[in-house]
Nucleic acid binder design. Structure first.
Length: 180
DNA sequence: CAAGAGATCATCT
DNA sequence: GATGATCTCTTGA
């Protein structure tokens, strides 16, 4: 059920698409918060200008160079956390941003979770999760496969959001989401 | 309904 | 000192 390390070492674009319909589980104070992933974005490799890692290996981006299955959490615009799962192999910087989820359990029904900042708020994501592993028994945040099949014709692609500065990379159709 | 501004800070130049 | 992988509220047509 819980996705293992091998899953995260596939091609980032495949993972980004495969994550649609998967279940994200956050364990906090003994309680579980559960949601279905319905929107992702891929950030791939050292040349992707939209990726933080394109400007080189720094303290901040170090986690993107780790092997797949680590969480990359960072603060954006001073107010919101973005949650990413690192993919592929060690020394190759890539990650998938979890942009939106569908609440299943532990999230109040009227809570909106249709954007990265709101997802992080609903799941109580904070920087202490940065660089932690998504697999293994100690994990407080992981992804499960419940065998939910997302019909191909409901999977949509589009350019990524908020990356106008990424020049030739800004129009890459590396955002995946489930059509309502 | 669309457009703009503010909140607020880690990271990089 | 500038700038975002954002969200919400306010303004104005």
């Amino acid at each position: 059920m819980k996705l293992n390390k091998k899953f995260y070492q596939q091609k980032t674009l495949k993972i980004a698409e495969d994550l649609l319909g998967k279940i994200i589980v956050r364990k906090i104070n003994g309680k579980k918060i559960i949601g279905e992933i319905i929107e992702t974005e891929a950030y791939v490799g050292p040349n992707d200008l939209a990726s933080h890692a394109s400007r080189g290996r720094t303290k901040r981006t170090e986690v993107m160079f780790a092997e797949g299955g680590c969480w990359y959490v960072y603060l954006i615009y001073g107010m919101y956390y973005c949650l990413n799962i690192v993919t592929e192999n060690k020394d190759y910087p890539a990650a998938v941003l979890i942009r939106a989820i569908q609440p299943i359990k532990g999230i109040s029904a009227n809570a909106k979770t249709d954007g990265p900042g709101k997802v992080s708020r609903a799941l109580r994501i904070d920087k202490s999760l940065n660089f932690t592993a998504a697999f293994g028994k100690e994990s407080k945040l992981w992804i499960e496969d419940w065998g939910i099949k997302t019909p191909k014709n409901k999977i949509k692609k589009s350019p990524r959001i908020g990356v106008d500065y990424a020049k030739q990379y800004k129009n890459k159709p590396w955002r995946f989401y489930i059509k309502k």
